[in-house]
Amino acid sequence: MNQKISKKDISKLLDELGKEFKVFSPSRESGVTTFAEWDGRDSSFLEWYRNTVISPKAQLQPLYEKMFSFHKDKEGYHLELPPPTDKKLIFGIRPCDAKALTIIDKTFQDTYQDPYYLDKRKNTLLVGLGCTNPYDSCFCTSLGLSPTQSSDVDLMLTDIGDEFLIEAVTDRGMKLIKKTSYLKEVTKTDEAKAEEARRQASSKVTRRLDTKDLAKRLLSSFDDQDFWEKVSNKCISCGICTLLCPTCYCFDISDELVKKEGSRFRSGDSCAFPVYTKMPMENPRLEKWRRVRQKVCHKYEFYPMSFEVIACSGCGRCIRLCPVNWDITQILASLPVKVKA
């Protein structure tokens, strides 16, 4: 049975959840919207929040993350892992960003488990908040999602006016609402309102990406250098689309050393940078068109080949935040070779 909570009680709810979890909610940090630790005061995000610039993926795979520290003494080197992760709760994650985590789980689980990502993932509860006001750049509905979809979160909230309808999706979500105060039973009217909110939200996503035979179409356009050169012309290789993308997970590994104390860390990396593939004598993706092709094909061709899912959830950040208005939906609509269905 679904429940509901008054919007006025959200601050109190977050305070309560904060006793058990490190709670992250939408926030403005130096003018950039991101998920930050709930500070107990400002729930104004309920008014301004559409989606954050920095996706909540950053809570699971931060742009900078210590992997282990090392120090040296008479016996040699000693390596030490960071302390176990806190129990976290991400409040207000959008369905596209939650789906993105489900997508990149596959990489981090493949062959060898990635302990850093998966430990945080295991210890993080996701409380989703359906979109009521998607951006013009959003195209989640083309990736089989809806802006109010609950499939990838533990609890799902849907805006029904002065209240949120709460749906427990997983057992973890169910357990959480059982011990949470401030909840009320829902009425049939509430359910109807939620249904209407879901329907309206979906109809507001108007941008389209035709995914039919997309991997095949990309494969047949792969060697068309003229096409890739044309569509990469205006790209400035800044890497913003990849660093803000909730399904981009590439990273670099480096060391830091201060006197005899040091650490190995990983940091966000991007296929937009020439150095990403640079070897001492060669670089297989020195040319910009190759790097643009890699980015596009990895998401819509290679990832589906490996894991049977497109590495995109249609959040639209790469369109919305690109400094030169590079538009993935336009690029994919203009692929030169069409394969007959």
Binding site: Y249, D252, Y276, T277
Partner: peptide, 24 residues
């Protein structure tokens, strides 16, 4: 084959040739 690699286990991204990772 030789590639720039960081993780060695098909996660960090850079050593792919198409859908294959040289490391994995």
């Amino acid at each position: 084959l030789e590639k720039r690699m960081k993780c060695g286990i098909g996660k960090c991204g850079r050593c792919n040739i198409g859908n294959l990772y040289v490391c994995r």
